[in-house]
Nucleic acid binder design. Structure first.
Length: 1177
RNA sequence: AGAUCCGUAGCUCAGCCUGGUUAGAGCACUACACUGAUAAUGUAGGGGUCAGCAGUUCAAAUCUGCUCGGGUCUACCA
């Protein structure tokens, strides 16, 4: 007895997976899947490092499934795919976690706890959940090398990061500058955007807001405004409501003011500019100061007139120059005003104005000292200005706003910081000097300086409107005090210098979906600003820059070796205690506080200290393509000093043998995948560093997956308690079902609503069906001892249905390859799913069941086995990337018997491709026969229609019927139908099929236009022709078909229709029971003759006996004897089909007896009878 | 505020790029059937203003514009 295919008692995916996991680790299946491809073309994949100080979630499972399936697929396609794992270990979340755990705050660092201890705690916390991550990685079937991961806090990693920074430094792309950052005066520290996004930081507060009046200076630029005032505006007579008043109008003053609104009056002493929108409409308005009632002329955005002026009854868009109104008294808004001129923002660019609040501290002299050459107090133009609030003119204090800073820099207006780091005004600001701009000290007697400033402005005819304004403003999450935006020193990477190159390189990247790359990412690149690297933290990569105290000299370190040599040099030059702890072994840890203890020496012999900043952790992860390998050994010096050009060459050369090393084989990546939230994170930092240092893309294809939401479409969060535990999910449903669900439910880049019921469905529907099909196969294959020992039977010798399922299979193979190559696993999975369900299981297996259990083990049966086996085996390989466990399980169970592959795992074999060696008898490529697939579809449709008819008239399938009519619309359709006639007949239990020819008159026909063809030809006449066709009689249609064309008259114009321009289908066959679908029509003869009824009875009888056999527990092959006590009518039916019955039920004897003891009572078509079935022997 | 994705049956999704006249599938529900794949399967049925409005067109779920709703990222502003 030969070995048998394993059979199972039930589908238990988690149990199968546990078995496979044990096997994988025992056989080192992953390692082997890589080593087996030694020497093959590499497919480069980068693992985006997760942070292991939090638990993995279900959203990690989707992106990792995506990564895994692509890597597995590429491996099966013959590439060598190395997957080095990695961990992101620096950054604020880790610091915060440690602080929470120790119950300390940032202020305590260096006091209650030393930096050394603190960083030690961080180091310990960093991989806290590593075992959980390793566990989920294993259980979800993610093959990645966890034994040798890159870890961002390791010295070798940091060293490479330093080297990259030093390369940037050498290129002049690393510079120090001020930037405007959120700053908490109360806490005395800058805040990160992350900190600003803590819940509760944005609060609604009421602030004193002021519309300040900046007095315009008359000069060339502003001359047109003053001209307008003198002439009283260019009068538009059609708009004059009151001609008398208009003529009387004389400008009472030439004083003209730009109106600018602020919610932070304390920034006004630092004002250096006014910004307007280039295409915003502004107006010059003659009016009066509402507080002092003195005449003034003011400039503001036209759209915002109604905020200050009474516009009752006026459409703002119809306001024209010259329009004056004196109206409604009952309003808080100003009712006396007149438009003198209208212009665009860009028209007043460069206009100058008088400083609003001049003191010694902000005098032009001081400005010149701080920023030599600055030209302040001008009107600037920038697109960030809106007309949502205020006046459409933005008071610009470069020190206290990012936009202000940017535009200020563009125009060179200088910078004034009239507030110190404690949050109080500096000296030299008169009565405001040394006053806190907000109540940072919880002073109960605090007087709001903003109010005083507003009062001063009011008195001086410099305030147009002052009011309390409620808005949301960010607060420091630790002190609860309002933050302010403050200029702080920071180090930047000049990404803007190579913006165009980055945009260009981006165009070569294959983004999935395209919109992420072109839209979100492309846009981000277009609007890029320089990368602010600085962070004032403790646990992170230190910026390797040392500076002399007078800031005239600095040095950027690019390697440990360089640092150590500089350490020694400084000790020699500076002497004393300098670096004495680092002379012996050099530096052992590149973190704080050690690096900060090191003093270097400048070229001129001055001591230099490290600038205290750490770098943005995103630089860490973006440096991963290089830092994961560390700096190469350059001692051979065969390529010269280390550079971007030879970085990987050295790596390659330093490995033995060199061919196995790292060359082009590691950079750039062929493929990366992460969540779409990484677009401006990892995707960007990878791209930026690669472009800056290596002038290359970092990845050729980037797949970004969407969010995983809960089943109601809400974001998963611990707070809402709707997070899905990936461990539990996988334990309950299996990794395969979870993976399959995640991939096929929606395109990975769409947000997906995660629903456990969906996994259940996948499990039942897809895996259940596949499992059943395998069970079915193994059941009979074991009986017959099929082990694929026989020669492969060529297609031409196989039956129609075998060729059909193989053709379908190959079509699926073809599509799956195309979709996988296109990074569309969702489509691939759906195609496979559909094949398993509607083709393999519900048609092939169902129709072929008999072939497996009936008859001897000869040609046809072997064909059936070979066919089904090929389908199953191919499927296991097709689904292997998406469902790595079950596929391997089935594959191994199949292969264990047939040994068709010399491989321990499905992941070591090749992905199926079309079998070009097969030549189907009717032509086609590989095993694909399109016409065969087409006619099988016809058969399925026809059968489905006939079954629906039987259902309609309530005649069960077991009752044979005589005839079916299927009108063939043309000769080829008839031929197609004839070839599948036997199939249909068997499927629907009908004795004959007739195909009335097109010319027949039995069938009534329907005609409708072929819209695609006719629409182009007829255009507007389409409707009329459509209506005319609907009126056609049967005779008209027959005539049309005979003539091949038809003359119509539409609106008196002749229209000639060709036969190809209409679609004719059969609709009805009078006197028959008819159904149709598309162009297919079937008509069923539902007459049950006595002869047919007898046969129906016989079939019913067979069915009942089979059930008895099964209930009695007989083996499939047991022979039986049957005795029946039956009524006469039934007895005749049975006797008539005795041979048939005996053959079906494996009976050697069928006796009719008058009486039966202990028989089984059965019922056939409402007639009872009694039978006894005895096993022979 | 900007960018981007999404909105089709109770639920999950096709269809949209390339417009064509009965808008599909699965799940769920109901009824029926099948019974040597049986914790499986088939058939039928109900269920839709294709988010809304406007436009282009002989024809719009499909193309264009706007609006609304949801998500995400970035920014945070006088």
């Amino acid at each position: 007895m030969s070995a048998k295919y394993r059979e199972f008692s039930g589908l238990n995916l988690p149990a199968f997976e546990a078995e496979i996991l044990a096997q994988w680790s025992e056989k080192q299946a992953f390692e082997k899947s890589v080593s087996l491809r030694e020497g093959a073309t590499p497919f480069v994949f980068y693992e985006g490092p997760p942070s292991a100080n939090g638990m993995p979630g279900i959203h990690h499972v989707i992106s990792r499934t995506l990564k895994d399936l692509v890597c597995r697929y590429k491996t099966m396609k013959g590439f060598q795919v190395k997957r080095k794992g990695g961990w992101d270990t620096h950054g604020l979340p880790i610091e915060l976690g440690v602080e929470k755990e120790l119950g300390i705050t940032k202020e305590d660092i260096g006091k209650k706890i030393s930096v050394e201890e603190y960083n030690q705690k961080c180091r310990e916390a960093v991989l806290r959940y590593k075992d959980k991550w390793d566990d989920i990685t294993r259980k979800m079937g993610y093959w990645v090398d966890l034994n040798d991961p890159y870890i961002t806090y390791h010295n070798e990693y940091i060293e490479t990061v330093w080297w990259l920074l030093s390369e940037l430094y050498k290129k002049g792309l690393l510079y120090e500058s001020v930037s405007i950052q959120p700053y908490s005066p109360a806490a005395g520290t800058g805040l990160s955007s992350h900190e600003l996004n803590q819940p509760g930081t944005y609060k609604d507060v009421k602030d004193t807001s002021a519309v300040a009046m900046f007095k315009a200076i008359r000069n060339e630029k502003s001359e047109f405004l003053f001209k307008a005032i003198e002439t009283g505006g260019s009068i538009d007579h059609t708009q004059i409501f009151d001609l008398k008043q208009m003529l009387e109008a004389k400008p009472q003053t030439s004083d003209t003011f730009f109106l600018a609104w602020t919610t932070t009056p304390w920034t006004l002493p630092s004002n250096l500019g006014l910004t307007v929108g280039p295409n915003i409409d502004y107006v010059l308005v003659e009016t009066y100061n509402p507080y002092l009632h003195v005449p003034v002329n003011v400039i503001l955005a036209k759209q915002l007139l109604n905020k200050y002026f009474d516009l009752t009854g006026i459409d703002i868009n119809s306001i024209k120059t010259g329009l004056k109104l004196v109206s409604h008294l009952d309003t808080k808004k100003i009712s006396k005003w007149k438009i003198l001129a209208e212009f665009k923002g860009k028209d007043i660019e460069g206009c100058e104005y008088e400083q609003l609040i001049p003191y010694e501290a902000n005098s032009p002299k001081v400005i010149e000292e701080i920023t030599p050459g600055a030209k302040p107090f001008r009107v600037l133009v920038d697109s960030f200005v809106t007309t949502e609030d205020g006046t459409g003119i933005v008071h610009t204090a470069p020190a206290f706003g990012a936009d202000d800073f940017k535009v200020g820099k563009k125009y060179g207006i200088g910078i004034l910081t009239m507030v110190d780091r404690q949050g109080k005004f500096v000296d030299g600001l008169g009565e405001f000097s040394n006053r806190y701009v907000k109540n940072y000290k919880d002073d109960p007697n605090y007087v709001d300086v903003n109010v005083d400033i507003a009062v001063k402005l009011k008195k001086e005819n410099r305030a147009f409107k002052v009011e309390k304004y409620e808005h949301s403003y960010p607060h420091c999450w630790r002190t609860d005090k309002p933050i302010l935006y403050y200029p702080l020193d920071a180090w930047f990477i000049k990404t803007t210098a190579i913006k165009d190159r980055m945009v260009e390189l981006n165009k070569t990247i294959n983004w999935k979906p395209k919109s992420t790359g072109e839209g979100r990412f492309g846009n981000w690149l277009e609007n890029m600003v320089d990368w602010n690297l600085s962070r004032s933290r403790f646990w992170g990569t230190p910026l390797p820059i040392w500076k002399s105290e007078d800031e005239t000299e600095e040095k950027c370190i690019g390697s440990i070796e360089e640092l150590n040599s500089e350490i020694r040099k400084a000790a020699e030059v500076l002497g004393g205690e300098t670096n004495k702890h680092y002379l012996h072994e050099g530096i052992l840890d590149l973190h704080k506080p050690y690096v900060d203890e090191i003093i270097l020496v400048s070229a001129s012999g001055k001591p230099m200290k490290r600038v205290p900043d750490l770098i943005d952790v995103w630089f860490d992860s973006g440096a991963m393509p290089y830092a994961q390998w560390g700096l190469p050994d350059t001692s051979s010096n065969q390529f010269g000093p280390l550079s971007a050009e030879n970085f990987f060459k050295y790596h390659e050369a330093s490995k033995t043998p060199p061919s196995e090393g790292l060359g082009e084989a590691v950079f750039p990546a062929d493929f990366i995948a992460e969540g779409v939230d990484q677009t401006r994170g990892w995707f960007y930092t990878l791209h930026a560093i690669a472009a800056l240092v290596f002038d290359s893309v970092a990845y050729k294809t980037c797949v970004s997956n969407g969010l995983v939401l809960d089943k109601n479409g809400n974001k998963m969060s611990k707070r809402l308690g709707n997070v899905v535990d990936p461990f539990k999910t996988i334990e309950t449903f299996g990794a395969d079902a979870t993976r399959w669900y995640l991939i096929t439910n929606a395109s990975p880049w769409d947000n997906m609503k995660f629903d456990l019921d969906g996994i259940k469905e996948v499990q039942r529907k897809f895996f259940g069906t596949l499992y059943n099909t395998y069970q079915f196969f193994s059941l009979y294959a074991n009986v017959d001892g099929f082990a694929f020992k026989e020669k492969y039977i060529p297609l031409k010798d196989r039956s129609e249905i075998d060729r059909w399922i193989l053709s379908s299979l190959n079509t699926v193979v073809k599509k799956a390859n195309e979709y996988m190559d296109d990074y569309e696993p969702t489509q691939a999975g759906r195609v496979i799913e559909d094949f398993v369900d509607s083709h393999l299981s519900n048609w092939y297996v169902r129709l072929c069941r008999r072939r497996f259990w009936k008859g001897e083990y000869e040609q046809d049966k072997i064909c059936a086995y070979q066919t089904l086996y090929e389908c199953l085996e191919t499927l296991t390989r097709l689904i292997a990337p998406i469902s790595p466990f079950f596929s391997d399980y089935l594959f191994q169970n199949l292969n264990a018997i047939t040994k068709r592959f010399d491989a321990a795992s499905v992941h070591h074999v090749s992905y199926p491709s079309i079998d070009e060696t097969q030549n189907p008898p009717t032509g086609g490529r590989g095993a694909i026969e399109e016409s065969l697939e087409e006619r099988m579809q016809l058969a399925q449709d026809a059968s489905s229609l006939i079954l629906s008819l039987r259902k309609k008239v309530n005649i069960k399938v077991r009752q044979p019927l005589q005839k079916v009519l299927i009108p063939a619309l043309n000769a080829s359709m008839k031929k197609q139908l004839q070839q599948i006639e036997e199939l249909i007949k068997a499927e629907v239990n009908v004795k004959e099929i007739e195909y009335p020819d097109p010319g027949n008159t039995i069938i009534s026909k329907k005609i409708k236009p072929n819209f695609v063809a006719l629409g182009k030809k007829l255009g507007p006449k389409m409707k009329a022709v459509s209506a005319a066709l609907a009126q056609f009689t049967q005779e008209d249609i027959v005539l049309f078909e005979k003539e091949g064309q038809y003359n119509l008259s539409i609106d008196g114009e002749p229209v000639i229709l060709q036969i190809a321009e209409v679609e004719i289908s059969s609709e009805d066959i009078p006197g028959w029971t008819v159904a149709n679908k598309g162009s297919l029509t079937v008509a069923l003869d539902i007459t049950v003759t006595p002869e047919l009824e007898a046969e129906g009875n016989a079939r019913e009888f067979v069915n009942r006996i089979q059930k008895i056999r099964k209930d009695s527990g007989f083996e499939l092959t047991d022979r039986v004897e049957v005795r029946v006590k039956a009524a006469n009518g039934l007895k005749d039916s049975l006797a008539q089909f005795k041979d048939y019955i005996c053959a079906e039920i494996l009976a050697d004897k069928l006796e009719f007896v008058p009486e039966i003891q202990d028989g089984t009572e059965i019922e056939i078509n409402d007639v009872s009878l009694n039978v006894i079935v005895l096993k022979k022997g």
